[in-house]
């Protein structure tokens, strides 16, 4: 399998998970939330500063269908993560190469 094909496959799997399968995720509190509730420190949690953001809580504001709202948020998150991490490693690699000898693809 070529690297390009591998990358396309990995991105497709990630989009499928974030865009569609995430709908079937458990909505129970996670381990930390559960422990906070049972031991009693959950009340110290504060309202999130970005609570009113357009994608807060993995829901897309303005999209009324809940399944679509979550799926769009997931797809946008995958795109944002890919752009930021991809951009970061490209910049870091350019840094590494500057001053290095020999051309590279």
């Amino acid at each position: 399998m070529s690297t390009r094909r591998f990358a396309v496959l990995a991105i497709a799997v990630s989009l499928l998970i974030a865009g569609a399968l995430s709908w079937y995720a458990s909505s129970s509190p996670d381990g930390l939330e559960h422990v906070a509730e049972t031991t009693g420190f959950h009340q110290s949690a504060e309202t999130h500063a970005a609570e009113t953001g357009p994608l807060a809580g993995y829901a897309t504001r303005g999209v009324s269908d809940e399944r679509l709202s979550g799926g769009v948020a997931g797809v946008l998150g995958v795109a944002a993560t890919g752009l930021v991490m991809g951009g970061l490693v490209v910049v870091l690699r350019r840094r590494d190469r500057s001053g290095a000898t020999g051309p590279q693809a």
Binding site: I11, V13, S14, I17, S26, G74, M85, V90, R93
Partner: peptide
Amino acid sequence: TTPMAGLVAVFIFAAQMINFPVGAGTSGH
């Protein structure tokens, strides 16, 4: 590692959206 790092970040973001039940009304991802 350059392409892998980007793909890993993307996959982890996606996978963290899926909470799986671990019993007694609790989940994890």
